[in-house]
Simulated assay, not measured.
Amino acid sequence: MAQNTYKSQPKAPVVKKKKENRLMNYLNHTIGFERLFGEDNAWPIKHFDRIMWISFLLIFYIGFNHNAERLVRNIQRVKAAVDEKRAKYTTLQADFMKSGKQSEISKQVLATGLTEPVTPPLKIVVKPEETQP
Rank of each mutant, 00 (worst) to 15 (best):
V78D: 06
K79I: 04
F48W: 06
A94L: 03
I62S: 02
G32L: 04
K85L: 13
M52C: 08
E34Q: 09
F37G: 05
M52K: 09
Y61G: 03
R35H: 14
G113K: 00
A81I: 09
R73Y: 03
R70D: 11
E104Q: 03
F60W: 04
M97V: 13
F96T: 05
N67R: 13
F48R: 03
Q102S: 05
L57F: 13
I62F: 08
K79Q: 02
I31N: 05
T30Q: 15
I105L: 08
V82E: 05
Q93I: 10
G63I: 00
Q76G: 11
R50V: 05
A94K: 08
I31K: 14
L57Q: 03
I62A: 01
S55I: 13
F64K: 11
I45A: 11
R50I: 02
R77Q: 07
I31L: 07
E34R: 09
F37K: 14
F33S: 11
L92A: 10
A81D: 12
T91V: 11
P44T: 03
M97R: 12
I62R: 10
L58M: 09
A87E: 15
R86L: 03
W43N: 08
F96H: 04
H66Y: 07
K101D: 09
S99V: 04
K98C: 02
K88Y: 13
F56H: 13
L58C: 06
I51S: 06
A87K: 12
L58Q: 12
E34G: 12
E104D: 01
I51V: 00
G100P: 06
H66W: 05
K46V: 07
D49K: 07
N41D: 10
T90D: 10
D40V: 14
Q76P: 05
Y61V: 13
I51L: 13
N67Q: 15
Q76K: 12
M97D: 11
R73S: 03
I45R: 12
D95N: 15
G32P: 01
R35V: 10
E34N: 15
H66K: 14
F48L: 04
F60Q: 02
